[in-house]
Amino acid sequence: MTNAGSKQRRPINIQSLSLHYIKYNSIAPEAFQSLAQNLVSLAIFDSTDKPTLTGPKLDMLYKALKPLKNLKTLDLIIPEELEFDASYFENFPKLEALFLMLPNLLHLKNSKGFRSLTNLKGLTFANKLPYLPKSLVSLPHLEKLHFYSSSLSTFQNDTLSSFGPKLSGLDLSSNHIDKIPVGTFQKILKLEYLALSDNHLESPLCSPLHSSIDISGERNEDITIERDVHGKAETKNNNLTHLDLSDNEFKDGSLTKETFASCTSLTELFLDDNDLASLPGDMC
């Protein structure tokens, strides 16, 4: 029973919280306890001006975020050099959108932790990793992946070709990619948006975009299977509409009509800031 003159405290019903210019290692472990029931969107932008050589641990931040099991959107921007443990994402089974701006991340621990994000639809991940974590390919509902401003230079073990069936947008801009292996994108059947700008590409892309495949048992409306003049089975991407190849190292003669022959639905092509004085007359 409360006194007649006293005011009853209303429950906190904040659903979205943005914390700009706050030091993540100063957040108390119990900071979000009262918000756990209703908070679905959280953004934390660290205020550090200069990266440290040995970034502080994220233990306090982990403890503070742990109760927020209803989060659907999480943004973390932390400029300090640090080691990040992906297993912590097991606390957020409902997460649908994740924005990780960790420009000085050099080591990712327990990358398999991404696999717990079974509802994730959008992932933006900026870092300094020289590889794309294989655990990302197992996300069944991932639709858009932005893995940019990293140190990625090559792909291993058909990582990209193993992405889930719903991936429609892929941004690998601002990396160090100089070569794309044959078949890299052939199994991303729903791909509509592909950004490879600000890399070091100089060779034609006809091979990775127009690839030889094993057609045994192949049935999918998103690809067209044809045979070339030599009888080799090839695929055509029926969904790709946006292709950004700007700010690379393409030279005159490196792009021909055949380069984009497999992209039958392509409507937007960006070739800005390459070493191209002209385009071949039959390219389009």
Rank of each mutant, 00 (worst) to 15 (best):
G5F: 08
S6V: 09
S6E: 14
K7D: 11
K7F: 14
R9M: 14
R10D: 05
I12A: 12
L17S: 07
K23N: 13
Y24D: 05
I27K: 02
I27R: 02
E30Y: 08
A31Y: 15
S34R: 07
S34V: 05
A36E: 07
L39E: 07
L42D: 06
F45I: 04
D46R: 03
S47N: 12
T48V: 12
D49E: 13
T52W: 15
T52I: 09
T52K: 08
L53R: 15
K57D: 15
K57Y: 15
D59A: 09
L61Q: 02
L61T: 06
Y62N: 07
A64K: 03
A64G: 08
K66N: 13
P67I: 02
P67R: 06
K69R: 05
L74E: 08
L74C: 06
L76Y: 06
I77N: 11
I78G: 06
F84A: 12
Y88I: 13
F89M: 07
E90Y: 00
N91K: 02
F92N: 04
L95S: 06
A97H: 14
L98Y: 02
F99P: 00
P103S: 14
N104F: 04
N110P: 09
F114M: 08
F114N: 07
S116T: 14
T118W: 01
N119D: 14
L120V: 04
K121F: 06
F125R: 11
A126V: 10
K128T: 12
Y131S: 12
P133F: 11
K134I: 10
L139D: 01
P140Q: 01
P140E: 00
H141L: 12
L142E: 02
L142D: 00
K144Y: 12
L145K: 08
H146R: 04
Y148G: 06
S150P: 07
L152G: 10
S153G: 13
T154A: 07
F155D: 00
Q156G: 12
Q156F: 14
N157L: 08
T159R: 14
L160M: 12
S162L: 14
K166R: 06
S168M: 15
S168R: 14
L172V: 07
S173D: 02
N175Y: 06
K179F: 14
V182T: 08
G183Y: 00
G183A: 03
I188P: 01
L191A: 15
A195C: 06
A195W: 09
L196A: 02
L196G: 09
L196E: 03
S197R: 05
L205R: 00
S207T: 11
S211W: 02
I215P: 11
S216K: 15
G217N: 11
R219M: 10
E221N: 08
E221L: 04
E226N: 04
E226V: 02
R227I: 05
D228W: 05
V229P: 01
G231F: 00
K232E: 03
N238F: 03
N239S: 11
L240I: 09
D244V: 05
L245Q: 10
L245C: 13
N248E: 03
N248P: 01
S254V: 05
T256Q: 10
C263E: 11
T267M: 05
E268F: 15
E268C: 15
E268I: 13
E268H: 15
L271G: 06
D272Q: 06
D273C: 04
D273G: 03
D275H: 10
